[in-house]
């Protein structure tokens, strides 16, 4: 349906209709997210435009009151721990999975990715029953372990993707020149898969930072995370501080995505240079 010099009027009509339709859909995707950001700066607790004035009072409440500050602290603590754990486990697994000799690759990959596919509520309830048995309910350890499980698939996928174009003769060359396996890993493999590792760990961080269902089930008020406080807030009475929280989460995701994209471009550029 591309537009050509010799296109008939009907085709031209369809062409513009298609463009218009796509514009509306893209607006539907992006507008709700953008529309609430200014509302978080509203000086009065209403949710409509035009706004009566600008103020930072909701951000003050978000960053300075104990309820939200504690939640932010918990979220960061849990997300950082889960990221470190899942990056280590996921990278190792991806290295193994990418070896051409790995047996039952599809089945193992399916198993490792499954936390991404299984509905959140099933994971939450199953982990809740399990933790109730072994006494890990309402503990930081329990929350970190559960988030690690949910986050590892992203690391596995990202690192496996980086390794897809990996030239295994490089490691053989290094080994042939006398480097022990540890040196080969740190000097040859790690620099090449680092962009994938960072991308994967950023996605892992986001997964844990945004996770709400598991946190609702297995954490107590002491381990309350940011999304958990927001969730209960929306259920009771929505207030502008929650919108401020949502804005912070949104900006955070955008920054993470920008970093991932920059890394991807950089690694593409580096590979491009290597090819020539």
């Amino acid at each position: 349906m591309a537009r050509h010099m010799y296109a008939s009027p009907v085709e031209k009509g369809w062409y513009y209709l298609h463009r218009l339709f796509c514009g509306v859909v893209l607006l539907y995707l992006i507008a709700p997210i953008l529309a609430i950001i200014p509302l978080s700066f509203n000086s009065v607790p209403f949710f409509t435009y035009p706004m009566s004035g600008w103020s930072l009072r909701w951000y003050e409440e978000f960053f300075l009151t104990d309820r939200w500050q504690g939640a932010l602290y918990n979220s960061i603590l849990v997300a950082v721990s889960a990221t470190l754990l899942s990056t280590a486990l996921g990278t190792l697994a991806a290295l193994g999975l990418s070896r051409p000799t790995f047996p039952w690759r599809t089945a193992v990959m399916g198993l490792l990715i499954s936390p991404m596919i299984v509905p959140g509520i099933i994971t939450a309830v199953a982990v809740y029953f399990f933790y109730a048995d072994i006494g890990l309910l309402n503990s930081y350890t329990g929350l970190i372990v559960a988030h690690t499980t949910l986050a590892t698939p992203f690391v596995v996928i990202a690192v496996t993707a980086t390794l897809a174009g990996f030239d295994h003769s490089l490691t053989r060359a290094a080994a042939g020149l006398g480097a022990p396996p540890i040196t080969v890993f740190f000097k040859v493999i790690l620099p090449l898969i680092l962009p994938g590792m960072i991308a994967g760990s950023l996605f892992a961080f986001l997964t844990s930072f945004d996770e709400v269902i598991v946190a609702l089930f297995i954490a107590s008020a002491e381990q309350r995370t940011l999304p958990r406080v927001m969730f209960s807030g929306i259920r009771e009475q929505i207030n502008p501080t929650i919108i401020a929280g949502a804005t912070v989460l949104t900006l955070f995701s955008v920054v993470v995505l920008a970093v991932v994209e920059l890394l991807r471009r950089r690694s593409e550029r580096l590979r491009g240079i290597r090819d020539t």
Partner: peptide, 16 residues
């Protein structure tokens, strides 16, 4: 970008 923004933040947006 919307794909990676927390589902909770987007749901909040819709509620508002």
């Amino acid at each position: 970008v919307p794909f990676w923004i927390s589902a909770l933040a987007r749901t909040t947006a819709w509620v508002v």
